[in-house]
Amino acid sequence: MPKEYQIKLPHNTTGKNVKVEENCELPWDVLHIIAKRLDFDDLFHFAGVCTNWRAFHKIYWRNFLTSQKPLLLHKSYHGNNQSLYTLGSISDQKDYCLKMKSCFIQSTKAIYVSSSGRYFIMLAHDNSFLLINPFTRIKKVINVSTFEVKFQYSANNALLAFGKSSEEFVLVVICDLNVSRSLNVYQSRNCGWVTYSTMENQGRVVNFVVFQYKIYVITDKANIGVLNLNSASIKFLELKSTPRGRIPAYRCWLVCCDEQLLMVDFIRNNMLPNVYKIDFSTMSYVKLETLGDIALFYATCRNCYALSDPNRWGYQSNSVYIVDSPPYPKCTMYSWDDKKLQKDITLPSPTSPGRHFALGWSFRHLRDEVDYSLVE
């Protein structure tokens, strides 16, 4: 049984030639085998079979959601302008089909933005953002009235964070507005949008991440600041050094892992990025020559995540996994240990005919939280 799903079994169960008890209860190791073969929709109905299955499902589903195993979100197009979303596990070579028509039927014309906090963030044609959680079937619609988002462009990036020990949430997006780009923040506690601006010498915000209960942002001049959710301002760190040159928005990412804040810069025509750690003791960038026991997961121009102890999930440490889209998505692993090593990894076989595109990585265990009391 996989480590992430170790469950205490009932007495007298071996997993082989098990007799079903008179009350029709199945041993939990058998239920585990059944559950692994089910899609998300089927798993939702799994708990409704009987008390025995409901008790197993409660533990299985909790472990499933907190698993750090990376999933890839795919979108496929086929006849009659129909589209299908699937989440693929490379290590398991399995596609989980998302059949939730109530959530996705109105989203076929929406533009996928990012995956954050177990939600898929999408930009709809009616100038609203859709927050869709396929694991709980929750959908939130955030209307935009204070600014207009051009439908033919997606927001460059988006982040969803919840208040600490609360269901209040913050949605942070960077939107294309005519020829300019703006940082916009929605807070559920006041149901309003605020547009943030930065001083010209600091540059434009191009990316953000939650780190130690605060939202950190980075500009195209490599300046880093903390978002103040109480006063619509950004407090920039007094860094003693920054990487040289302007950083294009499509290649710069802030990533947190193992209590470290990292800046990842995917250099043009070089699949091994420059990675810097923000050293808060010296207030400077420190270029890393190795990632150690960390792997990076990057979907071109979509999102970037870091995972510690990746060997546990079937991935290699000190490496970067990059996913391209056209014509059919593929994943390539690049190693820091052997910079000449490139390994193409087979993605789960498509479950339907048509064109397939990788939209980005999804880490279902992540639920970013912010603490309002930490913001000055």
Rank of each mutant, 00 (worst) to 15 (best):
V18W: 00
V18A: 04
V18S: 06
K19W: 11
C24Y: 08
L26N: 00
P27L: 03
P27C: 00
P27A: 04
W28P: 06
L31G: 04
H32C: 08
H32S: 12
I33N: 10
I33R: 12
I34Q: 03
I34G: 05
I34F: 04
A35Q: 03
K36I: 13
R37K: 15
D39P: 12
D39C: 13
F40D: 03
D42C: 14
D42N: 09
L43F: 07
F44E: 00
H45V: 08
A47P: 08
G48A: 08
C50L: 05
C50I: 10
C50G: 10
W53D: 01
W53E: 00
A55V: 13
F56I: 05
H57N: 09
K58F: 10
K58G: 07
I59R: 10
W61H: 12
R62N: 12
R62W: 07
L65T: 00
L65N: 06
T66R: 08
S67M: 03
S67F: 00
S67C: 12
K69T: 11
L72K: 05
H74W: 12
K75N: 11
S76P: 11
Y77W: 10
Y77N: 12
H78K: 13
N81K: 15
N81C: 15
Q82N: 14
Q82L: 12
Q82D: 13
Q82R: 14
S83P: 07
S83G: 07
Y85M: 02
Y85F: 15
T86W: 01
T86S: 15
G88F: 00
S89L: 01
I90T: 12
I90H: 00
I90W: 04
S91H: 10
S91L: 01
Q93G: 09
Q93I: 06
